[in-house]
Design a protein around this nucleic acid. Structure first.
Lengths: 245, 245
DNA sequence: CGAGCGGTTGAGGCATGTCAAGAGTTGTGG
DNA sequence: CCACAACTCTTGACATGCCTCAACCGCTCG
């Protein structure tokens, strides 16, 4: 692990408040690894041996069942993932693959579990992290059950605009094929939906999103803080299952 | 609060390991309340002031958006709910209403937050509870995205059979209308789906489920431990968002 | 250059929602 | 105790949202 990487990790909400010696101890037993693009580094069902921290690149979390698969989230630097599985010492519920060349820190789950019993500040951080992650997935389930695909697309586009500082134009952070899976639809259907949304205030030029009528798009998406955030955590990178970004 | 209720609460994983004095202190600031059937005791968006513990009756957790609503979970005794919102000191993401006459213990959220900073055993319990709850919602999201409605119904019926000790016949624990909403479909569609499932090894006689061909039903449902459990927590009543039951 | 991949578009089909009506049950108030 | 209202559940007819299959385009990269 490079020395300049430690402060980046330390800055995460999860590690911010723990004792310095304890942080160093945790890092001492961890190690970095670089993965090429498209590598499946976690397979669902495997035992959770390591907490993962993304330092560079990006990782797709996805789930499989009966020869189907769907994207659950995309994790970008600097953030952790599969914290809950490590804590429960249980099998991963999701698989993970790199979307590009990605650098990961691996923290042994057993050290993690020992640490929050030793460092009560760290325990509080873990509690806050898990509670925020839980709420994030609940929001996700709500959007799946309460909105149809058209509304999900509209609110996603609007939310990304807000994350881009309210910009009227921005670049989609993920491929459309992946976005479709994340939003619970097929690529074909997403493509068609985006076409029809042109009459509702948003236009796409390849990966570029151009909001032409924010009021109209907002009326369709009906953004709701109990679904679309803002996230509980100020620094969203701390979430174990953040919205796709 | 009745004295005979304290051991029931103490028995929950969440409260099992904390110091006795701390448990008593937490309970001293809590109070019981009885609600009639159909009362909406929590409205989504309200500040989370109390952790709720169901002692008798049952509670439906549901979400609303744009004049639509859907059931997210049903909580039965003895179990807690909306732990995450209390910890984050954030607005409820879900509403709650009683399905029958229900007795609830209300634990002030501020006391709760103070307590896990004071009692490190309790902090560990909260961590385990939240991690289990998180994984429960992830399972839920997986079944929504990976299975179609027919498969969701089949796996639900099969899972309930297992919860009933593998019984070939049992009574549905909830109304079909509510079950439909929980499974993300309309009551009409559930009714029709149940009819068509008669050729796949399960028959319904009113609220009674009769499994006539377990192999066939299993082949359709393809139960998966990474979706359908078993739950991480041995005592599933400890989960903050358990499967409908 | 050509294979592979992401994206788009069209045609068609299936799954699911919507609307309506009726049977059965429950709960309530006269 | 009965009558009525309200509700669940079911069934049918119909509409539509979404998926599947197929073809094609444009781009990237070996």
């Amino acid at each position: 692990m490079r020395p300049e990487e430690l402060p980046e990790i330390r800055h995460l909400h999860l590690f911010r408040d723990m004792g310095q010696a304890n942080f160093e101890s945790l890092m001492a037993s961890s190690y970095a690894q670089n993965f090429p693009q498209g590598l499946e580094m976690i397979r669902q069902g495997d035992p959770a041996d390591f907490l993962h921290i993304v330092l560079e690149g990006s990782v797709e979390l996805f789930a499989q069942w009966s020869n189907r698969e769907c994207t659950m989230a995309v994790v970008r630097p600097v953030a952790t993932f599969i914290l809950a599985a490590c804590i429960r010492d249980a099998p991963y519920l999701m698989s993970a693959r790199t979307l590009e060349r990605t650098r990961i820190i691996l923290v042994p789950a057993s050290d993690l579990r020992a640490m929050f019993r030793r460092d009560s500040e760290f325990a509080v951080s873990v509690i806050n992290e898990l509670a925020a992650s839980y709420r994030s997935v609940v929001r996700n389930a709500k959007t799946l059950k309460l909105r149809n695909s058209r509304e999900r697309v509209a609110s996603y586009l609007l939310r990304q605009s807000l994350l881009a500082g309210g910009a009227a134009s921005y670049i989609l952070p993920v491929e459309k094929r992946l976005l479709a899976s994340y939003l619970g639809m097929t690529p074909e259907n997403l493509s068609r939906t985006l076409r029809t949304l042109e009459s509702d205030g948003v236009k796409l030029d390849g990966p570029r999103v151009i909001i032409t009528n924010r009021e109209k798009l907002t009326a369709l998406a009906q953004p709701d803080r109990l679904i679309d955030g803002p996230d509980d955590i100020a620094d969203a990178s701390g979430s174990a299952l953040p919205k796709i970004s």
